[in-house]
Design a binder for these strands. Structure first.
Length: 218
DNA sequence: AATATCGGCGC
DNA sequence: GCGCCGATATT
């Protein structure tokens, strides 16, 4: 791997997942030597200015502290200090919400051992298929809705839309679940099933693990 | 036509 | 001086 490639990869570190920053040096003309900065979103779209980036991300993102040229966040102390040696490397703030586009599918792999019961309707088998039990929902990962955290809706010009406000009588009970997670959870429930959508119906504290297990939104 | 590159306006 | 984006070159 050559030096240039290495440099590019280092530029990627610190940027939100999937985003890439490119530095192009002009090699001819009156402005030879000048460098242009480009960003590429996870879906491959190119951005060549901060306003363009802001238009794409929408109003819910604060890019005021983001320096487009350097790709870094301006630290609060950077104003008066000549020494820019140790800048805070927290770019995840500004672009966080738009990060990777991982589909919200179940990702349980076969390498994770799970109990399996073979069921047949053959007369000699003790365990037969139980229609009631089989109709139950397949198990989901706890707080699987968090997989939707980085997904946002876009309008016709690919501008990210701001999420709806939700009624304040809806409360999340899981760790780190935000209002956006709730909205995404409800939306996906509407999309995936015909069943009525309810909030948490069982006790807040599980009788199995009274001290630990918490409920989540259905 | 789409993309890469440079010019140059305007703050 | 420099960011931004239109103009022009390139594929």
């Amino acid at each position: 791997m050559d030096v240039l490639e290495k440099r590019k990869i280092q530029d990627c570190l610190g940027l939100p997942t999937g985003w890439k920053r490119e530095e192009v040096i002009r090699k001819s003309g009156l402005s030879a030597g000048k460098t242009d900065i480009y960003y590429f979103s996870p879906c491959g779209r190119k951005f060549r200015s901060k306003p363009q980036l802001a238009r794409f991300l929408g109003d819910s993102f604060d890019l005021s502290a983001f320096d487009f040229r350097s790709g870094k966040q301006l630290s609060v102390g950077a104003r008066k200090s000549k020494r820019l040696k140790n800048i805070q490397y927290d770019y995840s703030r500004g672009l966080k919400q738009d990060a990777s586009l991982v589909l919200p599918i179940r990702q349980t792999a076969s390498i994770f051992k799970q109990p399996v019961t073979l069921k047949t309707n053959h007369a000699q088998n003790r365990i037969k298929a139980d229609p009631k039990q089989d109709a139950k929902d397949v198990p989901k990962q706890l707080f699987w809705e968090k997989r939707l955290s980085n997904l946002t809706a876009s309008d016709s010009v690919e501008r990210v839309l701001k999420a709806f406000d939700i009624p304040d009588n809806l409360l999340a009970t899981g760790p780190g679940l935000t209002d956006e997670n709730i909205l995404q959870s409800i939306s996906s429930s509407l999309h995936l099933s015909n069943h009525p959508i309810t909030g948490q119906t069982s006790s807040k504290v599980s009788h199995l693990f009274p001290s630990k297990r918490r409920g989540t939104m259905k």
